[in-house]
Amino acid sequence: MQVVRYQPRTVFVPVALVLAVMAVGSIFIGPMPISIEQAWRAIFNQEVAPHISLVIQQVRIPRVLLCLAIGAILAMCGAVMQGLFRNPLADPGIIGVSGGAALGAALAIVVFAPMAEFYPLLLTLGTVPIFAFIGGSLVTLLVYQLGTSQHGTSVAIMLLAGVAISALAGAALGLLNFYADDQALRDLALWSMGSVAHTTWANIALAWSTLAVLLYYLQHDANKLNAFLLGEAEARHMGIGVEALKRRLILLCAAGVGISVSLCGMIGFVGLIIPHLGRLLVGPNHNLLIPLSALLGGLLLLIADTLSRTLVSPAELPVGIITALAGAPFFIALLFQQRGRM
């Protein structure tokens, strides 16, 4: 089997162009017909009907920005987790990390509900993401301890651990719903609808700064992660501080998944499809795979979100349904491909 590698430029430039066109395009698409000229005026604060300026500035642009950041975060975390587990099936949703993060987020919403009325920003930017991060890291550590041994990662155990943890998280979420007071219940319901539709500029700032931090630190470890693919012992012999690397990557991924879950609920399969696609284009080298996953992840979520708000317009589908419809068959196809190796 010959390996064909495209020049990075011939992959990144077209992907970035498509992404830019899609991002601008999706500002014009929506239930309310807005002409290009009107949108242009709204974006640059020129004279335009107030309802159009409101839709563009407060609804569509924030939404596009959030999609780009969350898609990129989820795809990068997927790519890194697959490297960490040395297995292309490790997706934050499938192995239970998103479930753990969701449980943490829900816990924070219920526990801190009484304070929400007075400090709304503390809840959305503080406790919820932090609890989601803690839930996500605990699950990642647990699955890693369960699934990996000296001889590599057991796919079966990794996936089963994901099933068990997702079930546990689901049950605990149900319990929380049961015990939550009215305010908390309202917040939980709003949050668990999991979409990119209701957002604030503070959320967008959080998402984009998370993206920047992750991109910087993950890229910093890309070479080490490449060596890690050979095996833990091999990486250690190549002079890499394996324990510190694992700890760092687990925490970074849990932070990424935790923050995206706390902002948008559970959006599955982006972290599975995109790194796979990325490897087909540039190979498993994380130096290229991580930034490419960020671009492609943003693009995928943008497309999924545009579909979600146009298919049943003027109503909306949760974007997680679209990504699951695309991702689940893809996952089954990957399972078929891997069947001999499990």
Binding site: P88, L230, A233, E234, H237, M238, G239, P284
Partner: peptide, 29 residues
């Protein structure tokens, strides 16, 4: 790592690196 290297019995690499990319990983440190 620059002075002592270990050749493993077998390696579990399952991602489609090319042979050249695997060899180049040796230059990491």
């Amino acid at each position: 790592a620059q002075h002592m290297a270990i050749l493993p019995q077998s390696s579990q690499l399952s991602f489609a690196f090319s042979a050249r990319e695997v060899v180049a990983l040796g230059g990491l440190s």
